[in-house]
Each structure stands twice: as C-alpha cells, then as structure tokens.
Design a protein around this nucleic acid. Structure first.
Length: 197
DNA sequence: CAATAGATCATCT
DNA sequence: GATGATCTATTGC
C-alpha cells in the first residue's frame, strides 16, 4: 500500500479558507522536481503550520485591494499554487481555496521533513538543526526549491511536481491550535493561523 | 537568551 | 518611490 496516501482533490480546496487551512494540518506536501537532469529529487514534509487569507474582507490579504495581476490567481479555481516573492528574497507557498471567482488562499508556513531530508539539509547549509530546515514560510520553499516558476501549478495533479497527499497515519489524535496570524499589520485579531501541537 | 537591523526586488500607488 | 504573509547575523545584557 502507498504510505503517502492519495492526492487531495479539487473539492478539498473548494471550501471555506479557514476550513481548508485547518484540514491541511498533518497532510503531506510532496515536491517532485521533474527535471531530467541529475538533480532529480523527491522531497516531502508533513504540514505543521498554515494560515488562512481571505479576500476583500481581509486587510492582510493580497486580494484585499481587489483584483490585481498578482492576486488574480486567488480569484481563480481552487487547488492551484500561489507562489510569490516576499521581502525581495523569499518565496512563499500558498494554495488557492474557495470556488472560482471567490478569493482565498492558504499560506503553508511550516512542514516537518519527511522524505529527502538529506537533500533539504544540503539546500539549507546555514541551518544545522533538522527542526529548522522547513520551519518557516521562506525556509520551506528553500528546502523544497520552490520558486517563481512554480506559481500556478495544479496541485491536484502530479503533473506540476507539486501536490499534497493525505496523512499516512490516520485516526491519530492530533490537537490543533489556532492563534492570530504573524508578520502582518492588519487583521491580527482573527484566529486564522493553525498549527499542529 | 532577547532584541534589532539589514538584505533585496516584484508589485502596487 | 514605498512597501512587504521573512530569515539571518549581530549586538547587548
């Protein structure tokens, strides 16, 4: 049997953004670098931290000011990746939620290394601690080699080499904690950050 | 150990 | 031209 579970379908993402963010915890983010060169590698990690971002009602969201070229993907169909550059240095990985025409996305803030730990460690020489390899939005994309080109990938299919599968250990008691979001100026009152205990 | 500044660039006003 | 969903290194106690 497949230890990695099956890929989450589009219906999973076509829900309330906070609901998706909550349900993504414990799932497995898989990154298959589909390159044909010797650098082929497969890495995966268990999602341990997410944040929900809505649309016009959410002052912290990129879709807050309406539809712009960058945020337009948040208005599109669910299940697609939304990768963007933050502070000029780090890429952040989001997954589009809500039905088409309605903005929403879940920021994947942290994962726990599962497969390809060695590869991730090599990509992040600066940090020696395993817990810190993908313990943040920017670190996670660094460890998984996610960049601008990975924007707009259909994560309900293996085609893009980036997808999320179900949890391998089911029925496990997982305690989910929700707190206010981090690193933003507005909308902190809302408990839209979810993390695994 | 806690706090702070610097790096760096696509996107929006 | 200003801003930002960040990370790291350095300083200070």
């Amino acid at each position: 049997m497949e230890s990695s579970g099956k890929i989450l379908g589009r219906d999973f993402y076509r829900r309330d953004t906070a609901e998706v963010a909550r349900n993504l915890l414990g799932k497995v983010l898989v990154r298959e670098k589909g390159g044909n060169d010797s650098g082929y590698s497969k890495v995966s990690g268990i999602i341990t931290e997410t944040e929900a971002y809505y649309g016009t009602d959410d002052p912290a969201s990129h879709a807050h000011r309406g539809l712009t070229p960058r945020s337009s993907i948040m208005f599109g169909a669910p299940g697609f990746s939304y990768v963007y550059l933050c502070y000029g240095m780090y890429w952040l990985l989001n997954v589009v939620t809500e039905e088409e025409g309605r903005p929403g996305a879940v920021l994947i803030r942290a994962v726990k290394p599962n497969e390809g730990l060695e590869v991730m460690r090599q990509r992040r020489k600066t940090s020696n601690k395993d817990d810190d390899i993908a313990g943040g939005p920017g670190k996670l994309t660094m460890a998984m080699d996610i960049k601008k080109e990975d924007n707009g990938i259909d994560m309900t299919s293996k085609t893009g080499g980036l997808y999320i599968t179900g949890n391998s250990c089911d029925g496990k008691n997982i305690s989910i904690i929700s707190t206010r979001r981090i690193g933003i100026k507005r909308g902190q009152e809302r408990m839209l950050r979810f993390l695994l205990d």
